[in-house]
Design a protein around this nucleic acid. Structure first.
Length: 264
DNA sequence: CCGCCAGCCTGAAGGC
DNA sequence: TGCCTTCAGGCTGGCG
């Protein structure tokens, strides 16, 4: 479900409330999750910091331990001050000294693991909102990209955090056709693409992410960016710029919407 | 080495 | 009403 802006929204929502809280109890309700955490002990540890890397949520605990959560398609992390009526699809509950962190996951694809080192950095490319991400980096990676630009943008080893919705919004904003080969982009297009990546992601964070079905912030509220989507989910609707009906195609098994008039 | 696809899961929605 | 198919915001491993 969530991409960078949604994960960022969750992390911001949890950061101040969870920092310095102690983990009093961990309850697991899912066999796969139990296996992932088998033999690991986090009861009694304190949450020192919470941060995001790509689409991963990292709870930094004392003694150098990291609890890493990936919500995949339908996971949620909800913070509750007091125990409330039971929710569906609860896979784990972490009881803190002043509240509860509930891991809810309808499709059970989410992942939770405990690690000592930060091996995420080996798997993930740069953060698109960091200074490291500039036209030089993007241009250099694009030059080696034989795949379509849409698929390239979703490669977490190149840029961390862009998924299916934002890849499409970014390409629409940049006026680039999703089937263009990555290495075919010219200098102006690279510049435009970099700007679009930063602008779309920043705007989506400002609007607390996109809720099309499952996404909720840590306090249970939904995002607002779905009201600002310009291309995703709009098959056959007139393009907001040129009125041409929006097209829908498949790329590597994922749906892509685009305007063949505005995206060249 | 690289690109692609099935598989992992469940539930909602649409067709018949 | 109910059954069947398709689809969904992600990632991985294995195949060609």
């Amino acid at each position: 479900m969530p991409e960078l802006p949604e994960v960022e929204t969750i992390v911001q929502g949890l950061k101040t409330t969870l920092s310095q809280q102690k983990i009093e109890q961990v309850r697991i309700y899912d066999s796969k999750l139990a296996k992932m955490l088998a033999g690991k002990q986090i009861t009694g540890k304190r949450i020192v910091n919470i941060r995001r890397r790509g689409k991963y949520i990292i709870f930094e605990l004392n003694e150098g331990l990291n609890l890493i959560v990936h919500l995949r398609m339908s996971g949620r992390l909800l913070y509750q001050q007091n125990e409330r009526k039971p929710l569906r699809w609860v896979r784990a509950v972490i009881k803190l000294d002043n509240g509860l962190l509930v891991f809810q996951d309808r499709r059970r694809l989410g992942v939770m693991e405990l690690s000592r080192s930060d091996d995420l950095n080996c798997r993930l490319g740069v953060e698109p909102l960091s200074p490291e991400f500039d036209s030089d980096y993007l241009g250099q990676k694009l030059a080696a990209g034989k795949r379509p630009i849409k698929v390239f943008l979703m490669d977490q080893a190149i840029i961390a955090g862009i998924g299916n919705i934002y890849a499409q919004e970014i390409l629409f904003a940049a006026g680039i056709h999703p089937r263009r080969q990555a290495l075919s982009l010219g200098d102006n297009e690279i510049e435009r693409l970099g700007e679009a990546i930063r602008n779309v992601l920043r705007l989506a964070i400002r609007h607390q992410g996109t809720t099309v079905s499952d996404f909720q912030n840590a306090d249970g509220t939904e995002g607002n960016f779905q009201n600002l989507l310009k291309i995703y989910g709009r098959e056959k609707e007139p393009c907001l710029i040129c009125q041409t009906p929006i097209k829908r195609i498949k790329q590597q098994g994922r749906t892509t919407y685009f305007c063949e008039q505005c995206q060249k």
